[in-house]
Amino acid sequence: MGLLKEEDRKYLIDEFSKHIKNPVKIIHFTSESNECMYCKETMEILKEVEELHDLITLYIYNFDTDKDMVEKYGIEMFPATVIEGEKDYGIKFYGIPAGYEFSSLIEDIMDVGEGKPDLKEETVNAVKDINKPVHLKIFVTPSCPYCPIAVRTAHKFAMANENIKSDMIEANEFPELSQRYNVYAVPRVVINEDRYFEGALPENQFLNEILEALKEG
């Protein structure tokens, strides 16, 4: 215990009590492999977060041995964290949700606990119209102040439409993947493999990027 400062813990308990009305499952996949840069730290963070509200429950699985759960959630790497509400929305964190990404984790939990994404109504309606699969990969570094804007928007879209899956990827922990996608600046948002953009866009512009990608596809 003790990653969170006491004042921050109190603040979050208060915020969570205002927002969380439905059960939130944090489904976490870890590994004992030496290759895992921050598995231990990630688990510590999630354990502290679980303590902040009665409706939050942390489930821990082993990436190497809990194959059925790995398959069920479509987990590709570790550490991986899924934020689930009444269903699996397709919200994932690959790598440690620390630094600025801690705020993405916290706000995702509040959205899921509230049962609706914090989006404009017109955006929600437009996102709901997407009827093809969309997979968003958001490459970030924990020290990037703009990255949570991109991660949060992508995760909110996933919440609003089950065709959309969205993964935060902490670039330092997955260097090969970052290289494969030529990531040299963050946030980088990859839409269905081929299209990408950089930077924190407002939700309507982010949505336009997705719609353009679907047209091309």
């Binding site: 570094t141 990255c147 030529n182 040299y184 600046a185």
Partner: peptide, 16 residues
């Protein structure tokens, strides 16, 4: 080359 080597935020992109 913006985002392909050129950056304006060292704290964001230094690890690359």
């Amino acid at each position: 080359f913006r985002g392909k080597g050129i950056s304006y935020c060292a704290t964001c992109d230094a690890p690359f």
